[in-house]
Design a protein around this nucleic acid. Structure first.
Lengths: 102, 102
DNA sequence: TTAATATATGAGCATTTGTTCATATATGTG
DNA sequence: CACATATATGAACAAATGCTCATATATTAA
């Protein structure tokens, strides 16, 4: 097969997919996304559930926000986060299912 | 929701899924896997197609081998690599499709 | 055996990443 | 207003990552 016969990937697509997989590749972010796929959570609840500092969780949420994988709503002093990309959750679920059944 | 009401993930599963997504998160490895999902390739062919050094490609192939995402067969001096995990290719394809249609 | 070719691998290095610590910002309360 | 609470954010730092360069290994041919 020669180069011209291949279906190549657009560099933009490669970067976009890379960003998504990078987001999913970190255990902390995986846990956060998995948690948020089950219920809307406020920041300190996530921190408590994962046994992590508020700061560490907040930094990771900022990253997930930048990637538009999560969104939030404010209720007084509290911010409630939830998933904002069902497709990414679907990828995560599939990978988890596969890892669990092997 | 309390901690005991959650479906938590086994740490082993989290690490396993993290390894898979880390493998997919790098543009070079994505390109290699995508190429190998289309055809069996020898190392220097991959290097040429991706415009990368033989060494860089070989290092990444070593990593993908460790994760059992690729396999190879020898033919003389040449090693032919191919994909060894259809599920991971499926995850990659889905992510690519999604990135392409948005 | 010597040389050539294909690939693998170790060391080194610059960049990226994920955390902590300290502090800033935003909202609500008295 | 002052203060408490919830969250965000910048700086710093250690660890992980991906490449290059030099060299090792494996196979084949002369």
């Amino acid at each position: 097969m020669n180069a011209e016969d291949h279906s190549f990937l657009d560099e933009r697509v490669i970067e976009e997919v890379s960003r998504i997989f990078k987001a999913l590749a970190d255990p902390t972010r995986m846990k956060i996304l998995y948690l948020l796929s089950q219920e809307e959570c406020h920041v300190s609840h996530i921190a408590e559930m994962l046994g992590m500092s508020q700061s560490a969780v907040s930094h990771q949420l900022a990253l997930l926000r930048t990637l538009r994988l999560v969104k939030y709503r404010r209720e007084g002093k509290t911010l409630f986060y939830s998933c904002d990309d069902e497709h990414v959750i679907s990828l995560l679920r599939q990978a988890i299912d596969h890892a669990q059944h092997q």
